[in-house]
Design a protein around this nucleic acid. Sequence first.
DNA 1: CTGTATCCACCTTGATACTG
DNA 2: CAGTATCAAGGTGGATACAG
Lengths: 125, 125
Amino acid sequence: MGNTVTTKKPADAKPSTAACTLSMKAIQDIMDVLGGKWRISIVTCLCFSPRRFSELLKMVDGISGKVLSRELKDLEMNKLISRTVKDTQPITVEYAITDYGNSFKELIQIMAEWGVKHRKKIIGH
Amino acid sequence: MGNTVTTKKPADAKPSTAACTLSMKAIQDIMDVLGGKWRISIVTCLCFSPRRFSELLKMVDGISGKVLSRELKDLEMNKLISRTVKDTQPITVEYAITDYGNSFKELIQIMAEWGVKHRKKIIGH
DNA sequence: CTGTATCCACCTTGATACTG
DNA sequence: CAGTATCAAGGTGGATACAG
C-alpha cells in the first residue's frame, strides 16, 4: 500500500497522494451506504439469516422502531436487502440480504474477526 | 458464516443467533472507534503517510477545523494515531498511524478494493 | 500553524400515540 | 405485526473569531 503510483504531479511533498485520495473516496462510497449508527449492524444480522421487523428490533440493540423502519427502507433502496410481505394473519414481513448485499459478507466477516481479536484492546480504551 | 454453532439454546427459530450477536458486537466495537462521519477517512489517509493538521484539513474533504481537531484527539486517545509536535518556526504537528492503528490497514485495504470494484453500482444508486 | 471558544442552525432521535 | 405521524430534546456541525 503506498508505493505503486505512476503519476508524477509537480511536487506533492508526499508520494502516493493520488492512491490515498482514491482509497478515501472508495471508502466514503461504502460508508455512504453502510455508514451511520445502525446500518452495518442490520446488514450483519441479516447476513446470518433473514429476519422479521420485530426480530430485528430485538436483535439490534438500542434501535427504535422509527429508526429501524427508516434504515431498512434506505438499505432496500440501495439494493442491499429485500423486503417480502407474507400474508399470514396478521401479516409478517421478512427482510433478507440480497446477492449484492451478500458481497459485503466477506468484508463483515473480516471486520468481525478483527473485532474479536482486538476486543480487549478496544474495550480497555 | 452461519453454521458452525455448537451451542443449543432451547428454540431460537433461527440457528446461529449467538454467532450473529457476537459478530454484531464485534463490529460495534470497531465502529465505536472508527465510526462516525470522518474517522475512517482520517485513518485511511494516515495509513499512507504521516500528515500535518493543515494537510489533513485539505485532504479530508469537507471537514472543518473544529471537527478535525476533535476527531484527531479521539483517535489519539484510542491509540490509533500519534501526535508529534515539531519545534519548527512556527511549530508544526505531525499525525501518524501507530502500530496498532496500522493493524486496520489490512481492513481498510480490503474496503478500498471493494469500494473500487463496486463503485458503479453504488454511485448509480 | 495549530488549535480552542462561542454562537447558532440543523439533523437525528426517543417517546408516544395511532393506522391498517 | 409492521409500520407512520408528531413533537420535544439533545447532539453535531459550520462559521467565525481568537489564542499560543
